[in-house]
Design a protein around this nucleic acid. Structure first.
Lengths: 100, 100
DNA sequence: AGTTTATTTCGATGGTTGTAAAATTGTTAA
DNA sequence: TTAACAATTTTACAACCATCGAAATAAACT
């Protein structure tokens, strides 16, 4: 990964709320909120994040789009809900650039 | 490190020019520009960064201050020049949070 | 003093975060 | 199969923050 792409990823994580959203998704801490049919590690709906962060749904929606755009997560709609999963390789590549 | 502090560090690296500056300092690529008395890995003067990035001295000065403020580098004046060294532990802590 | 290197101040420009209100998409119940 | 509900997204807008250079200032060498 080149440094311009890395800067984009870092920017996506550079806001406290967005970093929290990413960590919640990556660590699957949303299990208690998630719909029962899904596995814990791949669960995260917008409404769960709203509960935790106390910011509005439109803002969460916007933040999620930025994380998707940076390649840090992927999302998938399941019925009414939006499910998110982290893409850990993206962070690994950034880390490689910074440590290399 | 807590996530708010991590976000601050990530923000400092979230701009392409600042990331380049940090990488230059961390990798000691500025040796050819540095004053001869200093060791390669700890050398980096503002004028060298200006050469590489083609942005003005005031902007470089401002970016360096943000990197210092995030704890990613330390600076020291040696005569006319400003010397910078990376503080790799800061990045390590951020990485630990993101991987943990 | 004059030159070189870096910093501060200030202003212009553009981007970011957030909300309210409306629109969209999917589910459920009559 | 409509009507009502529920989750998310889009649009529009306000408030705030970031990047950058020009000019002036500071610090250090010759």
């Amino acid at each position: 990964m080149d440094s311009k792409q890395a800067a984009k990823v870092l920017k996506a994580l550079s806001h406290p709320n967005r970093l929290e959203i990413y960590l919640s998704i990556a660590k699957g801490e949303q299990e208690r909120f998630a719909v029962k049919e899904l596995h814990a590690k791949e669960c995260c709906v917008v409404s769960a994040l709203i509960e935790n962060l106390k910011i509005g749904a439109p803002t969460v929606s916007h933040h999620l789009k930025e994380l998707v755009n940076a390649g840090l997560i992927v999302t998938e709609r399941q019925g009414k809900f939006l499910i998110a999963r982290a893409v850990p390789e993206t962070w690994t590549e950034v880390n490689t650039l910074l440590l290399g």
